[in-house]
Design a protein around this nucleic acid. Structure first.
Lengths: 228, 228
DNA sequence: GCACGTTCAATTGTTCAACACTTGACTTCG
DNA sequence: CGAAGTCAAGTGTTGAACAATTGAACGTGC
């Protein structure tokens, strides 16, 4: 009787999920304007329902709504990236320090995210790699055992993922990151939490620097910067 | 030319603000069901607009939407309180540790929140006291200089405030808390951040304990507990 | 009296069509 | 060339309608 609940969700929620997926997959790139009528028609829903969906996503930060000017896929500024990584450090590090390796369910999931990451990298499937990477980090947050925090963190990860899948990554080699993730996992399961946290911090700094650098390069051409 | 922006907000946002206010003021108590048609009519807006408003508030956690069963004002469980206070500790303490007393604007606002708190307590105006108390804490978060965090924290405070304004407080004397707040402020401005953080942590623990205790007492009678 | 299925009004979920308002681009005129 | 006016496109909002679900009242048979 564990998961016996029926999964009836509103159409608006489903539409939001579909759009969220498209955004996170990079199918809808930052800056893309979304028009209510054609979009609603293409999904076979009414305009009102579409509005509810965009309302959801704009509150998640994935869409930006300008009154009377419509919604568009959000575009991260360098400041946004810095903000998000500040939060990631602030949330992930205590999570690791509070990690309890007896929570075998979480550890197991982290393990499989790690495996998925490595497989994706070897298969040169960058987007799946990004997904697994971020899932890896999201799972760390589980150690806080805090629903609100998980949901908030999920949003952050959504925003940063949106920035990641778009960048040009020809000059980057994801292989380099496999040992880092693997080591984080090892330290975590070994209970060497301090070391783990230190490595994680370094990894996050590195990740932020890389993303910032690449985004700065991209900024010059299509740059409708978002000051907020 | 500082604040030259015109305040064009959608009706849905305004309706959300009104309802938010009513909830936070305790006018709409936890558990109260909200019916779309009468509520929309009473505010002179259409049902669709009201739906957008409730959508906003449900994503903020203030309303809980059950499909085909309508929305109701959220009801905190003890677990919710614990979760929220865990986050408060996690966010406020680093904020204080990162406090920069040269940010005179923030310090100034904290000072006036403190003053407002003391005045409200002396006037026996509990609800205003709660408001100023929470504003005091919200301002601490400013030291992180992180918009996303401020907004998230604001939501948390909203939830906890909803829990606070409802409780029976005849057996509580808010005066007791004035010296604590004053001392936190003093330590903060004096740059004694470690001590300040310690006192703050203790204050938060105390606050959580008190709220939990009172809520537990209230739980017995009207308790439609919200497991989530 | 009680368990069960049925009916039914109330409420939410969703759609549709219409209109008001804003915006940005285009045009016109000085 | 620039300022003011024009206009279509798109969003914001409304009101009415219908479908789907719920909870309760009701009735039936045991």
């Amino acid at each position: 009787m564990e998961r016996a609940q029926i999964h009836r969700v509103s159409v608006a929620d489903q539409v939001a999920s579909i759009l969220r997926q498209r955004i996170l997959d990079g199918e809808l790139r930052p800056g893309t304007p979304l028009q209510e009528v054609p979009l609603a028609a293409s999904l076979g829903v009414s305009r009102n329902t579409m509005r509810e969906a965009t309302r959801i996503l704009s509150l998640e930060g994935l869409l930006k709504r300008s009154i009377h000017r419509g919604v568009a896929v959000s575009q991260l500024s360098l400041k946004d990236v810095h903000e998000i990584y500040h939060l990631r450090r602030m949330l992930e590090i205590p999570a690791v320090l509070a990690a309890d390796s007896r929570r075998t369910d979480v550890v197991q999931e982290i393990r499989s995210a790690l495996d998925g990451y490595e497989r994706a990298v070897h298969a040169r499937d960058w987007m799946r790699a990004v997904s697994f990477d971020l899932q890896f980090h999201t799972l760390l947050i589980r150690f806080h055992q805090n629903k609100r925090l998980e949901s908030f963190y999920q949003n952050l990860i959504g925003e940063v993922r949106m920035g990641m899948v778009v960048v040009d990554r020809t000059h980057d080699n994801p292989e380099r990151l496999i040992p880092v993730h693997r080591r984080i996992y090892q330290l975590l399961t070994a209970g060497k939490l301090k070391q783990c946290a230190a490595l994680l911090a370094q990894h996050l700094d590195d990740s932020e620097a890389r993303l910032s650098r690449v985004m700065d390069g991209q900024m010059s051409n299509g740059g409708t910067r978002q000051t907020t």
